[in-house]
Write a protein that binds this DNA or RNA. Structure first.
Lengths: 219, 219
DNA sequence: TCTCCTTCTTGAACACGTTCAAAAGAGTCT
DNA sequence: AGACTCTTTTGAACGTGTTCAAGAAGGAGA
């Protein structure tokens, strides 16, 4: 019985935080306000979330779930990879849109290795894996299938592209983040073309080098 | 007479801030401590720098000057582009090394459009131009010369690579940032090779697309 | 019902970045 | 010297994220 109530309080805090973040932006949303609007004391908010950034993390996870939910129906079998990539990236921007104000914090949450040192409790790597799984789906359902040689590495590479686009979006001050949308529209087919071209020996060699570079750098 | 003293105070503040940042990291260095160590009141520090981030910006500019000073002698005529690129990137890491703690703030300063809205007073774009000039030098003194077709765009592309590497460095938790150094050692020759290959029609077409993409997205 | 333990909740307190009204200092003109 | 202006300096104050000792609430066993 205690558990249910506790869980309810936690969810009320997340919901309130999300709303206030959306309505007033990150900086103007104070922990005191979140707690008050959720009907608890300031200290109690810290019982559930160890920092304001923790709440951003909760928001990030929630957005990621929404991103997945929105993207999957768009990945229709038989579309080419460029279309899939475009769909995923654009819907990513759509989902994050209302929170553009503090995209800066997102990047931190998305890339930063969490402070949890336990080998399995790494929260952000779970999120990363989830995100990569989405690109995996995009690759697997695309027609024509990408060359076998890079098919395995492609999801991670696309995720990197996604991170890059997100970074661009964070610093995109154009109204409605038009420039990011244009970037996506142009980059998605280009990347798809590149993937096809990776069949050619010259390009293939470069891609191999890049993949090797990434693997090599990863310890 | 007043001016000299004022300038001295300003410089004392920057010097103190740099030292404390280096010794204690960003978060543990308080504005109160900087002011106290510099022998002025807290409020006075704000007379010279409108925020703590402003001091980071000062540090960033100082590091950029040092980066330039260290890199230029390494760009010997006749070395190939890969060597030049490697030299610039590695010395960039060297210079930033002691401040790895708050590299996160650097990225912000480096990329973020400053709040100054005046068309010419944009502080960060000056810094950017300075940085790009360095890559321009690297390109111009390299032998063999890169293909004419991309020579003009190359400095900016390399600057983008530099930004990417810096981003990687920020999140690189390996001791001494070894992984970033390895990344540079592997990526520099690869990129140089790519530049050479851009003579081939296939690759050339891709590079053109990328350049077009960037130009296109830039409004 | 009483006792004990765990979970949850509180509000005051702390340290920080930042602001501001007020004062001190420096220079200039009469 | 004195009056006036502009620059520089001060320290208290505000609002913020975060911590913490203390207590309330809930459940389990006697």
């Amino acid at each position: 019985m205690q558990q249910k109530k506790s869980e309810a309080t936690r969810e009320r805090l997340v919901a309130t935080a999300l709303r206030l973040f959306r309505e007033q932006g990150y900086d103007r949303t104070t922990m005191r306000a979140i707690a008050a609007e959720a009907g608890v004391s300031t200290g109690n908010a810290y019982y559930y979330f160890s920092s304001k950034n923790d709440l951003v993390q909760a928001l990030y996870h929630s957005l990621q779930d929404e991103h997945r939910a929105r993207s999957l129906p768009l990945l229709r079998d038989g579309q080419n990879l460029g279309e899939h990539l475009r769909a995923i990236l654009q819907s990513g921007i759509d989902v994050m849109g209302p929170y553009h104000d503090f995209g800066f914090n997102f990047i931190g949450v998305a890339i930063q290795p969490s402070s949890n040192l336990g080998p399995f409790s790494d929260d952000s790597s779970v999120a990363r894996a989830k995100s990569i799984a989405l690109f995996n789906q995009a690759v697997n359902t695309a027609r024509p299938q990408p060359p076998l040689a890079i098919r395995a590495d492609l999801p991670e590479l696309l995720w990197l592209v996604y991170m890059g686009v997100t970074l661009f979006w964070v610093y995109d001050r154009s109204p409605g983040q038009r420039r990011t949308r244009r970037l996506i529209d142009n980059a998605a087919p280009l990347i798809a073309k590149l993937v096809i071209l990776s069949r050619l020996p010259v390009v293939r060699k470069i891609v191999d080098d890049v993949v090797q570079l990434i693997k090599n750098t990863k310890q």
